[in-house]
Nucleic acid binder design. Structure first.
Lengths: 187, 187
DNA sequence: AATAACTTTTTACAAATGTTAAAAAATCAT
DNA sequence: ATGATTTTTTAACATTTGTAAAAAGTTATT
């Protein structure tokens, strides 16, 4: 998906404002298994995934718990860095070599202060992030691991070929043994 | 907490912009056990709780699952109404007679279009909501029901006098039987 | 092709939570 | 205050999920 389309889908901008956003964005390639947003570090950038797949995870004691996978078109940020300019909690890692657009948060924020349209774009960006997280929470509250596994397959049919089952089990909030039982049961 | 303080804590506004916000807000009293945001209905307002306590809940099949309690100072909205202007999923009900400030969403949105400062206020409001939901999700992922119960007591020591345990169990995501076991174990 | 390293499934058993029902305790209304 | 209603706890049993270890399957490397 083109970055311009990702931007316009959030909140339509006139050429002039769009140009301002594009002028502070750059496309980068990140190789496989690279942690580009790191717990306890300040993240200077907001990223938009264009190609590839990433995992967002947190550390609980010594094990990693996967909160979500990111697919093309989605924004990826360290929430605490973006919102408070402080060190964050999430790790985000590429699971495949990925292409993404990054924007320096500081530059974006100065656009927010100087353009009503871009401030509203930033508002819609935040609002859509609310819906994304809300969706995750709802899924967690209302659906069984088995249902969530089947939802994931429906959304990304070949994810089991791209992401190992241990990661998917972590995302579902069950052990890999339980996921194996779910898989055995579905067939 | 005064509404002006709630507003300024989200994002400081100059007198002029603050005045615009105040001019479209009104204080209302809502009596106990009133559902003022209702599943499947469009909610025309955003609310800020000044006094009282509310529960945010969803219906799963025939039972209600409590997502959160709202305390003074917090915003309460039907997310889908606020963001998409469509019917929402959450129910919000007063558990005590409450005082709240309400603002018509449509009026607020026209302020967003015409004031950069208020657009940025709306952006910060959305960003803080992200953090609130993120916090809920994190608690759900990383903490046991027992830990979350103790966290709740630490935050609102007398909540067990104001909210029945069946509601607290629903919020914790366990049955009331399990909550009784937790309480018996803590003592 | 063979070995090593990693991933996934299976098994057996333990621990935690749910379900249902009943009893006990607390609260409310007259 | 007393009986009625609601809320909370306890008990017994069923079900689900976790833990640990072994087996089977897959992928990478020499």
């Amino acid at each position: 998906m083109e970055f311009v389309d990702i931007v316009q889908r959030i909140h339509p901008l006139k050429k002039e404002d769009l140009q301002k956003l594009l002028s502070i964005s750059e496309t980068i390639q990140v190789s496989k298994n690279t942690v580009f947003i790191d717990t306890d570090k300040l993240s200077k950038y907001i990223y938009f995934l264009q190609e590839g797949i990433c995992r967002i995870y947190y550390h609980k004691a010594d094990i990693a718990v996967i909160l979500a996978f990111s697919f093309p078109g989605e924004a990826m940020i360290s929430l605490n860095s973006y919102i408070h300019g402080k060190r964050g909690y999430e790790n985000i890692e590429t699971l495949e070599t990925s292409i993404m657009i990054r924007i320096e948060i500081a530059s974006l924020q100065s656009l927010y202060e100087n353009s009503t349209a871009i401030a509203n774009w930033g508002r819609k960006l935040a609002e859509f992030e609310i819906l994304k997280i809300e969706e995750r929470l709802m899924q967690k509250l209302f659906k069984t691991a088995s249902e969530r596994y089947q939802d994931l397959l429906r959304k990304e049919a070949n994810i089991t070929n791209r992401v190992k089952l241990g990661f998917i089990a972590s995302y579902l909030g069950v052990t890999q043994v339980t996921l194996s039982r779910i898989r055995a049961h579905i067939r």
